[in-house]
Write a protein that binds this DNA or RNA. Structure first.
Lengths: 182, 182
DNA sequence: CGTGTCATGTAATCAGTTACATGATTCA
DNA sequence: TGAATCATGTAACTGATTACATGACACG
């Protein structure tokens, strides 16, 4: 069965790539490519501490001048084992809560132009995302030539591209249907 | 700006269609068509009570034999106003947390056949969803002929179809890429 | 005779973000 | 001069699910 507490495994997964700080993990998650997961400092730092008490990570303190010390976390052998175990287990589909679609569903309560306005905003948001994704895809394809394991990052990006495309296509159709109503 | 507390507006939206009980709202949300929103009894019942104290809904108790009384909620004029106001406001994109994609991202830590297994499960889940969506689409198209405001339900379903298709297409490509690795 | 449906409700729990504090440095 | 970056951390809060209680009836 699928296990909760995914945050800890996301963190372990990144530390398995290379040792890093909580700040680094947050930065990585903010890159457009990791658009399928988010995590706040309020989760990252306490989790990192917990992972130490459980023996899944270790820390090295790097002194810095002027800036706060960097606490660099490393994954332990036990941490790697637990990560692998989790990766092999099944997963749950996320519980979706799409506020935008709620506004569309109840669109008959407001003038059609209101729904059209929302859809245009939605479309513009995903157009922007698309641009970034396509740019990232180019970079990814270069990286993959050098490092074969980059294929997994590429696959997650590829899903993002497919879905963004689907949303944009939906926007086009939805606008056509609703614009007839005005 | 977008407003939190979407649950209350989802509930108001349904009550605006027709008077109903908390149980009815939960049932509606469980239909495949509303695959973009979920709500538990632990949220629905307390929210319904709160909406009464705020004057946005009213209740009628329907006595039943053998079964518990049905508490039927109706939206008030004030409730309708607040619903409309909310519908006109902007929205936030949902914060996504896709456990499946995390397992794909860290796929280089486990054998390729593990990732392939996950993708096949993902594919099968969306194949099933697709079947239901297509069935629902047929029904929807009939309903739309009679009732023009059904177009909004149809649009939400249509987005579900587009996205499920995109995911399935991604599965096909991802499997092709990973099966070369074995 | 066990499971599912109808129908309401709450307490306990969990998961997670937000907002704040600290403080030096760099950049426009 | 004020904003952004680097870097860590926690307390308060919110939002939501889970698990339970109640209880009759219908279905196979």
């Amino acid at each position: 069965m699928a296990v909760k507490n995914v945050s800890r495994f996301v963190i372990l997964g990144f530390l398995n790539w290379r040792p890093m700080t909580g700040y680094d993990i947050k930065k990585l998650l903010e890159e457009e490519i990791y658009d399928f997961w988010s995590e706040s400092y309020g989760t990252i730092y306490p989790t990192l501490k917990k992972l130490i008490t459980e023996g899944l990570t270790e820390k090295i303190i790097e002194k810095q001048e002027g800036k706060p010390d960097r606490i660099i976390y490393t994954i332990t052998a036990v941490g790697q084992e637990q990560l692998q175990e989790w990766l092999k287990k099944s997963f749950d589909l996320p519980r979706i809560r799409n506020e935008f679609l709620v506004k569309i569903l109840f669109g008959d309560t407001v003038p059609p132009k209101t729904s059209i306005m929302h859809i245009k905003k939605y479309r513009d948001m995903f157009k922007d995302k698309m641009k970034m994704y396509i740019e990232l895809e180019k970079q990814m394809k270069q990286k993959m030539k050098k490092d074969k394991k980059e294929v997994y990052s590429y696959l997650t990006l590829l899903q993002g591209i497919h879905i963004a495309k689907a949303r944009l296509e939906w926007c086009r159709e939805a606008l056509t249907i609703l614009e007839e109503k005005i």
